[in-house]
Design a protein around this nucleic acid. Structure first.
Lengths: 165, 165
DNA sequence: TAACATATATGTATCTTGCATATAGACAGG
DNA sequence: CCTGTCTATATGCAAGATACATATATGTTA
């Protein structure tokens, strides 16, 4: 599952401390594209905001549940980090695309309900245009690479690296 | 044309000074998605590197010409900034995907020729996978947004902003 | 010699991400 | 009662990628 921001599931408190993660040292996970796109970075472009928008459009609610909503909507293809999620919501509110209100729940911790403003429709349309363009460009580049690389398939030269034949 | 990095065409020297750009002050270009994706940022994800890879795969040469190659290959949809271009090339060389050699040209400024190493094929295949996934996710989100927003089309309320009517 | 095109390269700000951490209420088990 | 876990919101921080501006150096042309 693509983790846009966070994803370590439940067990927030001291998870890292118990698991022995090095704070500041960083591991060296290698995701793809030759070591790149390791931890932070803009490897895949902005996806959290449109995902949040889509979730709020189809099913308004509070932040914590938004993750689940997004996960379901995208068939688990997109998972937004908790931290990033609230940052997106704060930004959207500061810009007038959502409004939030504290809910007086009689149980559980305090929570906010987020609602989209009419402006959000404009933003969503902007995002649609933008995402379609990104889709097009990614596909275009993929095709170009496929055309040029095409000769050797991943399992075809696992032993000869292009110049041994 | 999508400007990945730079694009102000010829006229490098003092272009900004003459045009009166504020160094450090920054303007506030608004590209799309409600003010965001203004100047730097990771708005569209990494595209410069795969573009350079595709260009080098189909037509090796020196950096300066690579821009033109990329522009032609992508039908002007992608334009890589000069600065970013060389940074990509340096990175690829540091990682062993390209090798460069100074060319003793009898005219013009010194230049480097860049060649891909056999390793570059693996990287290209990684990028293909990655780009296809990005294509898929962008399309998925676009569809979700379209479904939820669908009711009002951009030109349907160009005069009524949803709440003034 | 000034202006311009070619060519390579660095400085810097900004944006978005991903991981880690900080609070805090409610609830279950020992 | 204390500990641990789940729900819920939020900030700190480093890294990666982009875009704009600037710094060079060489050759060509006016």
């Amino acid at each position: 599952m693509h983790v846009l921001n966070q994803s370590r599931g439940p067990r927030d408190r001291f998870y890292a401390a118990q698991a022995g993660a090095s704070p500041g040292g960083h591991g060296e996970g290698r995701t793809c594209c030759g070591q790149r796109h390791r931890r932070g970075g803009a490897g895949r472009g902005a996806l959290a905001e449109p995902a949040v928008l889509a979730a709020l459009l189809s099913d308004p609610g509070h932040g914590y549940d938004l993750r689940k909503t997004i996960g379901e909507m995208t068939d688990a293809a997109i998972d937004v980090d908790q931290g990033g999620l609230y940052r997106v919501l704060q930004r959207l509110e500061a810009e007038g695309y959502v409004v939030s209100t504290w809910v007086e729940g009689d149980s559980g911790p305090r929570r906010r309900e987020y609602e989209l403003t009419p402006h959000a429709n404009d933003l969503a349309r902007d995002w649609i245009t933008h995402l379609r363009e990104r889709e097009r460009l990614a596909g275009l580049l993929a095709e170009l690479l496929e055309t040029s690389v095409g000769h050797a398939r991943p399992d075809d030269d696992r032993h000869g690296d292009l110049k041994h034949a």
